[in-house]
Design a protein around this nucleic acid. Structure first.
Length: 430
RNA sequence: GCCCAGGUAGUGUAGUGGCCUAUCAUGAUUGCCUGUCACGCAAUCGACUCGGAUUCGAAUUCCGACCUGGGCGCCA
């Protein structure tokens, strides 16, 4: 019966472990085989004169990263990693690895991201890489758990859609039988439709697709979006949910992933404290003006340089609120007393934007008016507008980029590090 | 889409016109070694992205292609 390597202790007389050959050190009459599974590494010590012949034969032909099954006596040994070692009665090569390897799993020699992604299955064998995805899994678990606890309904919406209803970003066209179709850029419109469906609180965690030809460390053409929509709520209500989720995700990772954080050499992992500051857009622009050389004025989008300058000033997570209506989508609700600004917000990490959201305009006539004001034709929005004519409650929501959350949480330099198989302009395989 | 920097053994690198029969590390192969833990030692193997041009001579200069990294733009 195979047991995980981290459960092998001198308290048990013998053990069977399965894993990958991390390293072989042959000293002549004595050899050491380091075997690794997802729980850890154990030293298999082979005194050549004392072990059966098949063990010696396997030792001679085994290569690094081959899969082996080892059965033997567990011995306490100060000098061995973990204070114990395994002396094999049996060593079986389950799957022999080819040589040489496409990259060095033991990390003596670094590998570039491109090389690593080409051999991602080997890359993820490295504990520090596996740690990223274990932490991502833990963070997502905490988020799912929060939503269920708070009475949200998990939904899934189509990723194959007929048309771009939001405008803005480029869509990937696909062949859908004899029709033209696209991969969805956002579940936004479907979430809103579920408000008209009376679901009140919905969330979806799923892929979104953007056909932008961007070439940066923080953009992906396929990303994971954490999306919510809540009825009878305004933007301030959903901002509270958002900051709470960020805190819960960090706190759960801090609690449940100490080994993974250690693997990543993150000693100062800090759980952020809610509430996050609410910084009005107008004030954000003033901070940016002081922090950067390039000209920036009220009404401009916030450039990456401006984001960094404001982020340095704020020091932690913060919201930018009260955006000019002009630079937000048509569906954001304008303030009654000042329609030039709207109830939209971005959640920022000092490094970059994590999330954006808003209270949506739920009144049909206002919405049609705002679509027209953006220079768009309301007639082409019929699919979107129809639910607003049959009893649409007030509602608000946001979308949060899962990869950016993990990237900023762990200080990763490239968002591709937070995705197993990233899709960007140049990468479609594996 | 624009701009910048690159492409040298399996991996990561050094090499800015001849000193290159190309450096170093790691790796692979073989041998020696009974306490290694980046084991050690010895020998061997393995590379200038592709095409064209300049030149007596090109890894090195120029042109084109392909590929990669990054910045900007674009981006709920």
């Amino acid at each position: 019966m195979r047991i995980p390597i981290n459960e092998v202790t001198p308290a048990i007389p013998s053990a069977e472990v399965c894993g990958w050959v991390h390293e072989v050190r042959d000293l002549g009459g004595l050899a050491f085989l380091l075997v690794r599974d997802r729980t850890g590494i154990i030293q298999v010590t082979i005194p050549k004169k004392k072990v059966p012949e098949p063990v010696l034969a396997a030792l001679k032909s085994v290569s690094r990263e081959s899969v082996v099954r080892v059965t033997g006596a567990v011995k306490a040994m100060e000098k061995a990693p973990g204070g114990r070692e395994l002396v094999p009665e049996s060593l079986v090569i389950v799957s022999l690895a080819e040589t040489p390897l496409p990259l060095d799993v033991s990390e003596k020699v670094p590998a570039e991201l491109d090389t690593r992604l080409d051999a991602r299955f080997l890359d993820v064998r490295r504990p520090r890489v596996a740690a990223v995805f274990e932490i991502r899994s833990a963070a997502m678990h905490a988020i799912h758990q929060y939503f269920h606890h708070e009475g949200f309904t998990a939904i899934t919406t189509p990723k194959i859609v007929a048309a771009a209803t939001e405008g803005g970003t480029e869509l990937f066209p696909i062949a859908y039988f004899d029709k033209e179709a696209f991969l969805n850029q956002s579940p936004q419109l479907y979430k809103q439709m579920m408000m008209a469906a009376g679901c009140e609180k919905v969330y979806e965690i799923g892929p979104i697709f953007r056909a932008e030809e961007h070439n940066t460390t923080k953009h992906l053409n396929e990303a994971t979006s954490i999306d919510i929509e809540v009825s009878f709520a305004d933007h301030t209500d959903v901002m509270r949910i958002l900051e709470e989720i960020i805190v819960k995700a960090y706190a759960y990772v801090y609690r449940s992933c100490p080994d993974q954080l250690a693997n990543l050499e993150i000693a100062d992992f800090a759980v952020p404290k809610a509430p996050f500051p609410r910084l009005p857009y107008a004030e954000a622009i003033e901070i940016a003006k002081k922090g950067i050389d390039e000209p920036i004025k009220y009404g401009d989008d916030i450039s990456p340089a401006a984001e960094r300058a404001i982020g340095a000033e704020m020091g932690g997570h913060y919201f930018i609120v009260d955006w000019p209506s002009e630079i937000r989508p048509y569906y954001a609700m304008h303030y009654e007393n000042d329609p030039s600004i709207c109830k939209a917000f971005d959640l920022m990490h000092p490094r970059m934007e994590l999330s954006s959201g808003a209270q949506r305009e739920h009144r049909y006539d206002k919405l049609v008016q705002q679509i027209s004001q953006k220079g768009l034709n309301p007639e082409s929005f019929e699919f979107y507008l129809r639910p607003f004519r049959y009893g649409m409650p007030p509602h608000a929501g946001w979308g949060l980029g899962a990869e950016r959350l993990v990237m900023t949480m762990l200080g990763l330099s490239n968002v591709r590090e937070a995705v197993l198989f990233p899709r960007d302009m140049h990468r479609l395989v594996p």
